[in-house]
């Protein structure tokens, strides 16, 4: 290398590289091929599920009402899934989100009974408290360096207790305006407001995760925290903010729950734990082979359509849980199989 051959002499120049610009294709022009099954099995599954129930339940399943209620039923799961996706992307667990959402809901309803402030204020308080819980998680995980699995599991119990303290074990009926109740139950034409909220949130999350420096850094930290640190990323801050965001979005989900259900009960929130995690895990096997918004939405639609179809077919309530669990098992088995094949070479 002491010879004086420069890079310029050996290699294509920058100008030549500019010629290769043909490979720079904007993302909106890169889709048209048929979706590969390995990465879009959920889409094919969804088509199959819809086709099956459309045939077995003629005129019932494939109707505006059914599709609308099916969507609405997964909207809050969806909001929670978008929220919890963020710490998952950063390589962290958040098992507290369902309890936090429940706490936020209970607080919203409790405040509506105890105070006379407008609902906007109550919602702000509920979301702020949920965000603070997320910050506490973040502090303990990112800066005190405790394991996220244990921290958030413990926090979920702490928060569940606080919710029970507010309800005193009873059910509280919220005193809300009709406008607020409409948020959870009404919609624009056939489209429920909750679905609109979810769509907006999913879009924002997608832009954030895939197209902002912060989202990219979050994915990097989740993939290899040691290498991320050595690339100059403030790993602790990324982890902290991921858990804060998850807390805030869980708080928002709680407000939506308060609007939809209207009755404060401590069992409501925790019931969302499993379906949400199932959606995120299932989503991570779709589209990209890691946590991503598109995959999560596909997973939600699949779960929503499947459960709605089963319910309309007259299946008993327990089937929902079994369905969720089975779907998740199939998803992770397929995902693992795919990774194993990919690591052999593709």
């Amino acid at each position: 290398m002491r010879t004086d051959v420069t890079i310029e002499e050996q290699l294509p120049t920058t100008d030549r590289a500019a010629d290769a610009d043909v490979s720079v294709v904007p993302f909106w022009r890169r889709v048209p091929r048929p979706l590969p099954f390995s990465r879009y099995s959920g889409v094919y599954g969804l088509v199959l599920v819809i086709a099956y129930f459309t045939i077995t339940l003629p005129g019932v399943f494939f109707s505006e009402v059914t599709l609308t209620t099916a969507l609405a039923s997964v909207a809050i799961t969806g909001v929670l899934a978008i929220g919890v996706m963020i710490p998952f992307a950063a390589g962290l667990f958040d098992l507290s989100f369902a309890s936090v959402a429940g706490f936020s809901m209970v607080m919203m309803i409790w405040l509506s009974v105890q105070t006379t402030y407008p609902e906007v204020v109550l919602a702000a308080v509920a979301i702020a408290v949920a965000t603070a819980v997320g910050a506490m998680n973040g502090l303990l995980v990112a800066y005190v360096k405790l394991q996220s699995f244990v921290v958030t599991l413990a926090m979920s119990s702490v928060v569940l207790g606080l919710a029970e303290y507010l309800t005193k074990g009873a059910q509280i009926y919220g005193l809300f305006t009709q406008e607020f109740k409409n948020l959870g139950r009404g919609g624009i034409g056939p489209v429920p407001y909750l679905v609109i909220v979810l769509a907006v949130l999913a879009f924002v999350a997608w832009v954030w995760l895939e197209h902002t420096p912060a989202g990219r850094k979050t994915l990097a930290v989740g993939s290899n925290p040691v290498a991320s640190r050595l690339a100059g990323i403030h790993v602790a801050r990324v982890q902290f903010l991921a858990l804060v965001a998850s807390g805030a979005i869980a708080g928002l989900a709680g407000v939506l729950l308060a609007s939809q259900v209207g009755i404060a009960s401590t069992v409501t929130g925790p019931g969302y734990l499993f379906p949400t995690i199932a959606a995120v895990f299932l989503g991570a096997t779709q589209v990209r082979g890691r946590v991503n918004v598109g995959g999560t939405v596909i997973a939600l639609l699949l779960i929503g359509a499947g459960i709605k179809g089963l319910q309309l077919s007259g299946a008993e309530p327990w089937v929902t849980h079994t369905f969720n669990g089975t779907i998740l098992l199939i998803a992770i088995a397929a995902g693992t199989w795919r990774t194993r094949r990919a690591s052999v070479g593709h």
Partner: peptide, 29 residues
């Protein structure tokens, strides 16, 4: 393998991970 590459990111993102700021436009990459 352990301390430099970010396996879930593609080649382009591995190249740009330490200089994302230079591609920032309207807050986006």
């Amino acid at each position: 393998l352990r301390t430099a590459v970010v396996p879930d990111l593609d080649v382009t993102a591995n190249l740009s991970i330490a200089s994302l700021g230079s591609f920032r436009r309207f807050g986006l990459v």
